[in-house]
Amino acid sequence: MKRILGGVIAVLIFIVLALAFVHIPFGNIDLAEYHYYNPVDNEHTQDSVPQHYLDEGKKETGSTNIVTAVVVDYRGFDTLGEVTVLFLASTGVGSIMYIFEKEKRRKVRRANAVVETASKLLFGFIILFGAYIFVHGHLTPGGGFPGGAVIASSFLLLYLAYPRFHAEHKNLNIAESLAGLTFVGVGILGLFLAGYFLYNFLPFGLPTYLFSAGVIPVIYVAVGVKVGSELTGIVDAMMGVRE
């Protein structure tokens, strides 16, 4: 019964959406031909939003990677919201898993010596790699989110190799709080210095250099630390369930 209902609804939605996508071209688009309207100054322009990012992005934000420029600078407020979502998820998971944590620990077989040593050796390198990804977010593909995920994966390795391993909740909380405060603090500083929340108030420097693009690297480091500690927190809460 439920299967038939599900099938019917699924087919209906498929048809409706597929018919809508007949009207949307794939690939054959000229990004420059969409002219936006600026509601604040009430003017119709000859400019197009994506084309503007591609043409002026490097000049306006100092970032070589335009996706990073959009994520952190043009639409930085979305990223703040997104970081909050992850923060909420880790808070929520922690709040739900709270009652299961106090029960006694589960017995786990020890991993063998090779795995233990190798993961101890690899741990530092993986952290370094994650840090590399988020520090260079404005120059190469990558950024705070994948970098943070890589850092969390290094902790995941330790969890799998050492059954007794346990990340200190206090330290994770402090790390994510400080990173979050940095992000909001940079935003509020921009508000005081220039009148715009999240304004890119640092000098841009020379593009393609590491110390360029103003506040983008600062924000991406904060995002990386925050994402890393939050995902580690989620992994810890999920692993921490004792039976």
Binding site: I29, L31, V49, P50, Y53, L54, G57, I66, V67, A69, V70, V71, R75, D78, T79, G81, E82, V85, L86, L88, A89, S90, G92, V93, I96, M97, G143, F145, V227, I234, A237, M238
Partner: peptide, 25 residues
């Protein structure tokens, strides 16, 4: 177009957050 890529970066993280919360529930 860079904008959808920026949007999807956000959407991926939101998806994983919802999933983690749902699994813990």
């Amino acid at each position: 177009d860079p904008i959808p890529q920026a949007l999807v970066l956000t959407a991926i993280v939101i998806g994983v957050s919802v999933m983690a919360l749902a699994l813990s529930i």
